[in-house]
Design a protein around this nucleic acid. Structure first.
Lengths: 332, 332
DNA sequence: GGCTATGGCGCATCCGGTGCT
DNA sequence: CAGCACCGGATGCGCCATAGC
């Protein structure tokens, strides 16, 4: 910066003023400074800047299993939005969620002195951990639960499940079975809730819940069980991956979809359209979730508040994508 | 830090020494300092530290379409390895690759004064851009090409394609068709090369290449074309997603896999095992790629070299995963 | 060997100074 | 002479390194 000042024939503080868009600089002076900066290829030292401003211009993100389509997409949206807003993003992705794990991750980001944090906290344990971050640090939970005093941005899982269940009911199915995600996941919980509520509201019987773990394998096993007892005519599966496994199991058992059984998934992964048959599913707008969470976080940061007073909750609506895996029941 | 020093009854210098694991500190003093740190919940200011050490302890990663399984997995591996090594990671993910795009991303990370960079550069354009980063900054390209003087860590695409093609040949197929990824992708290029070389080596005819773009839709269209002219008996598809679309198209056309046509994919995404039929494919160890690239980058950083003298290239071997989508040809 | 004092990293910012209207 | 636009000197952020005790 001293060099720039010398070349431009001004003091280094004038350079600083130009850099920070301060008003009290004559246009011609600004030009000269800019020219010198350009000539030298100068870039200011962000560490020094952070030292005095006490802001690192970095946002921390804790994510879980970014190998899955949902988290990866959300992360992607977050990163885009943050960069557009001029923030750097530092990420920690965890394969498994344990209390220790999450605490370490939050600690890690705190050590880095991020200006704010986003935790993709789809599990109960993670959501709880989020509420333990140092009190002065703005935090937004994505897909977090109601618990704790952290602002949340989430897709409306209950509404999504209602969409799926109602769709099957509307087609004329007597009831709808459900293959759920793991119990610790808030999303699984929301979807189960929506499914059950819709059935009860319609006066339909609520079949026993089938537990899965999001994996295609779990879906496959659920499919085999369903194929074995031949009770179900319509199934709402907790995510598309499990739906894939389930379709596979039904195919192997000689059960035709949608002729014998209708299937609805959740997520609308890019592959879903090419399943056999193409999957009717519930689409989540992950990019929007990313954008909204960054928006909320930046509001908190810029307002200087920590946002834990009035627990804000932004909900993004999902939509139903109808394809070929659902049809009216064949009255046998 | 001054507070810690006061509580411990030493100078702030001694605190610094304890923090940096300096040897010349009496054990009892160290204890006192540690106790004081603990009591105050003190964390050192990394900006201040970076200012004087000129190292930010941050690694930059540029990735493309982290929504896809491959990039997401690689990124995950990188992040894990970096964190294990005590580095923060700052990411930029790009949806599309243009020269401008990539340059901006690299610029962005440079501005952040990262200690080193990893560019997941699977496209020719991206690989070229990588060679333009400021000369003093250590860079490793993942999935980059031979061009430029940047060290590279990559899965051996040619070998993978050979595995796939040879497998089909060994089953007795007269030749193997190939649905390739987009031409600008180095991975697509490598796979095509391996496929063609294997055919030529075996004295098998080389069918015309079918172009795809990695998407299930492209695979679907390729599948329709193949179903229409009924020439192919064995197909090596450039990735699993396209293979899914292709399987779908074949199914619709009443072609049975593997009875009528054998299909091999590439990637081994988690869903592949549950395709109809379960897909024989080539597995890439993305986590290993992530680890190796971080290892290489840290070597460069710690050796103070920039590593552009002897263009190192680390190659990770892929493996064939045999499932149900391939079988000997039915001699009709 | 075990410790303390001093200086400086590169920046922003307060405050005070110059020249002009 | 008041008031403004513009600019520079000094100071300190929290840390590490060097020299000294």
């Amino acid at each position: 910066m001293a060099d720039v000042a010398r070349i431009a024939g001004v003091s280094h503080q004038t350079v600083s003023r130009v850099l920070n868009g301060h008003p009290n600089v004559r246009a011609s002076t600004r030009e000269r400074v800019l020219a010198a900066i350009d000539q030298l290829g100068y870039r200011r030292n962000l560490s020094a800047r952070a030292l005095v401003t006490r802001r690192t211009n970095t946002l921390g993100v804790v994510a879980f299993d970014t190998t899955l389509y949902g988290p990866a997409s959300t992360l992607f949206g977050i990163e885009q939005a943050a960069r557009d807003a001029g923030y750097f993003v530092s990420i920690v992705s965890l394969k498994t969620i344990t209390r220790k794990n999450v605490d370490e991750a939050l600690d890690y980001l705190t050590a880095q002195a991020v200006d704010g944090m986003i935790a993709i906290a789809p599990q109960i344990e993670a959501a709880a951990a989020v509420s333990r971050v140092p009190g002065h640090l703005p935090v937004v939970a994505v897909e977090g639960g109601e618990a704790g005093a952290t602002p949340v941005v989430a897709v409306d899982q209950v509404a999504g499940a209602r969409l799926a269940t109602q769709h099957l009911l509307d087609l004329g199915h007597r009831t709808v079975w459900h293959v759920a995600g793991p119990a610790e996941w808030l999303e699984a919980e929301g979807r189960t809730t929506g499914w059950q509520a819709t059935l009860e509201q319609a006066g339909a019987p609520v079949p026993r819940l089938i537990q899965g773990d999001w994996s295609p394998r779990a879906g496959y096993e659920a499919g085999r069980a369903i194929a074995a007892d031949r009770e179900a005519g319509a199934i709402f599966v907790g995510n598309d991956q499990m739906a894939l496994g389930l379709l596979r199991a039904l195919t192997e058992a000689g059960i035709r979809v949608p002729d014998d059984i209708s299937v609805v998934g959740f997520d609308d992964i890019p592959e879903a359209e090419f399943f056999s048959p193409p999957l009717t599913t519930v689409r989540q707008d992950f990019a929007e979730v990313g954008r909204r969470s960054i928006g909320l976080l930046l509001d908190l940061i810029e307002s200087g508040s920590v946002g834990r007073d009035e627990h804000e909750r932004i909900v993004v609506p999902p939509t139903l994508v109808t394809r070929k895996s659902t049809a009216p029941p064949t009255t046998a």
